[in-house]
Design a protein around this nucleic acid. Structure first.
Length: 315
DNA sequence: TCTCCTCGAGATCT
DNA sequence: CTCGAGGAGA
């Protein structure tokens, strides 16, 4: 592509440019992988420079190799980055340039699966560098521990690397250095895999939420037949204020009820949440509510209830 | 009923 | 980027 040549001559500015050869994000547990982390002078590959590579090669839960190198950036390291990472201009004064280290780094990772925390950041940064130096584009598939932990541990207050490491009680090591952070991420990933094994979680079922209700199974086998929920079918529209829809569905199923994604003739209750967030139906009714009203007029046993009435029924 | 599409909201990386 | 909403069209 001739336009690529133009972009390259302008410098490492690929903003908005597609990354056609970039690998895919995977939600999998694997025994062999390379955990990576980089330190940079900022968030933006267009204006910021890479100042450190770090990577550990893992197999069956053990570190079998590692890679680390500081990099001399094009421009000075801002003081707040030195404060954050501990990497100063003095430290990189005699370091090799990124064009010298990058090929070594690429050779180290080979075509292995990569693991990292918010690893899109690292991969995009490195991808753009491979293009800038006309190397084969970084195309490794990858696993993001940020994405994984959000799916698996929905009750955390946030999903920063530090939070994840604290949760898994990973010993405190130097923070915000490439090698120690990549090692820390690898240790967390091992714990995540352990959690997946012990709880027999099928990650494949997490890859598609098209049918939310189908993924929810009862957590108990003793039901109260007198509960107004028992034996009834529920659907939801809009966003609930007090909980996620998934958790509300779980409560229904635990009480012996059934959940559907949409409103059908078999639906008994439609729970109304807020639709304020959705501009397209702000002043109107959702398609689910319209269908429920039509079914009710036609004589079907369906009621449209508010969120609060729903909570009363749970009592 | 099922398969995409679009849109807004909210984090995380240095 | 990723997720979770509703919506359009087959």
């Amino acid at each position: 592509m001739s336009s690529t040549e133009v972009l390259i001559s302008l410098g490492p500015d690929f903003s908005g440019a597609p990354r056609p050869d970039k690998g895919k994000s995977k939600l999998i547990a694997t025994e062999s992988y390379i955990s990576i982390d980089i330190e940079t002078t900022g968030f933006d590959p267009r204006f910021d420079s890479l100042i450190e590579f770090g990577a550990v090669k893992m197999k069956d839960g053990l570190v079998i190799d590692q890679f680390q190198s500081l990099v001399k950036p094009e421009s000075d390291i801002p003081s707040y980055i030195t404060e954050l990472t501990g990497i100063s201009n003095d430290m990189v004064a005699n370091a090799p340039f990124v064009e010298d280290v990058l090929p070594q780094f690429l050779a180290f990772i080979g075509d292995n699966l990569l693991v990292g925390h918010n690893v899109n950041f690292d991969i995009n940064f490195i991808y753009d560098l491979t293009r800038f130096y006309t190397l084969p584009p970084l195309s490794n598939d990858f696993v993001d521990t940020l994405r994984l932990s959000r799916r698996l541990f929905s009750d955390w207050t946030n999903y920063k690397l530090e939070t994840m490491a604290n949760y898994f009680q990973i010993g405190e090591v130097t923070a915000h250095r490439a090698l120690s952070d990549s090692l820390k991420t690898a240790q967390c990933y091992e714990q995540i895999k352990k959690y997946i094994r012990e709880n027999d979680i099928q990650l494949k079922s997490f890859t598609s939420w098209n049918s939310l209700s189908k993924h929810i199974t009862s957590q108990t086998d003793t039901f109260d037949p007198d509960s107004p929920i028992f034996g009834k079918s529920f659907a939801f529209t809009g966003a609930l204020e007090k909980m996620h829809r998934r958790d509300a569905m779980q409560l229904v199923v635990n009480a012996g009820g059934v959940c559907c994604d949409g409103v059908t003739r078999d639906t008994n209750y439609l729970v109304l949440g807020s639709t304020d967030y959705c501009k397209s139906i702000k002043d109107g009714k959702s398609s689910k509510q319209k269908r429920a009203e039509a079914l009710r007029l036609a004589g079907y046993d369906i009621s449209i209830i508010s969120e609060n009435v729903f909570y009363d029924m749970l009592e």
